[in-house]
């Protein structure tokens, strides 16, 4: 464990908490892509099937929290606050993300076993899972500040992981190319948003795309 990974994980945790609190406090999931949240639930489920392989108490706890929080989020969006779900703007075709991620996991993986292919699928799937949400923001042309904070925390997490991988490569000679390439793709997808966040949201303005 190094500082980059720890802060990355905390940023990831913070993102999930921000989203749950936002939905719970406002009793609304307006502006949130239910499709992205379903993809994240799929990501955590397929990745953490390795839960019986004990790494550390920290890992086990975080995995359980991520899985539970992702299902809770999906439940809030599709059941409890269904009436506030903005499905007219959540129109990204997720099959274009799920199927290629799965086929790629079958082709490029560390080991052709069920657990390993599902782990690899989760890595590829995670790298693009935010696209329905970013698509929704671009479609409506704006995002609430709290949604922006959520996206910033979620995007920062993988960027911090890249620093963690550089650190681990230099200190432990440890590296995982699949995670690194997917992590870079994931971070690049947020760049446009990061720019808007820094230039607008941090200066107190609403995140609004030029018409």
């Amino acid at each position: 464990m190094n500082i980059f990974r720890l802060v990355g994980d905390l940023s990831h945790l913070l993102a999930i908490i921000i989203l749950l609190l936002k939905i719970w406090k406002t009793r609304s999931c307006a502006g949130i892509s239910g499709k992205s949240q379903i993809l994240f639930a799929i990501v955590y489920t397929s990745r953490y099937l390795d839960l019986p392989n004990f790494v550390s108490m920290y890992n086990t706890l975080m995995k359980i929290v991520f899985i539970a929080a992702s299902y809770a989020t999906v439940y809030l969006i599709y059941m409890k606050f269904k009436a506030t779900y903005d499905h007219n703007h959540d129109t990204f075709r997720v099959e274009f993300l799920v199927l290629p991620s799965f086929v790629l996991a079958l082709l490029i993986n560390h080991d052709f076993t069920v657990l390993e292919v599902l782990w690899t699928f989760s890595i590829y799937m995670e790298s693009v899972a935010i696209l329905p949400q970013l698509f929704m923001v671009s479609k409506t042309g704006e995002a609430e500040s709290i949604t922006s904070h959520y996206l910033f925390a979620l995007g920062s997490y993988r960027a911090l992981y890249i620093l963690n991988w550089i650190y681990r490569y230099t200190t432990e000679d440890h590296y995982d190319l699949i995670a690194i390439v997917a992590g870079i793709v994931q971070t690049v997808l947020y760049c446009d948003f990061f720019y808007l966040y820094i230039t607008k949201v941090l200066k107190g303005k609403k995140l609004q795309l030029p018409a």
Binding site: V55, N59, M62, F66, H110, D111, E116, W119, D176, A179
Partner: peptide, 10 residues
């Protein structure tokens, strides 16, 4: 098992 070792991150 190197795979378990490999997936020691979240």
């Amino acid at each position: 098992n190197f795979l378990i070792d490999l997936h020691d991150e979240l």
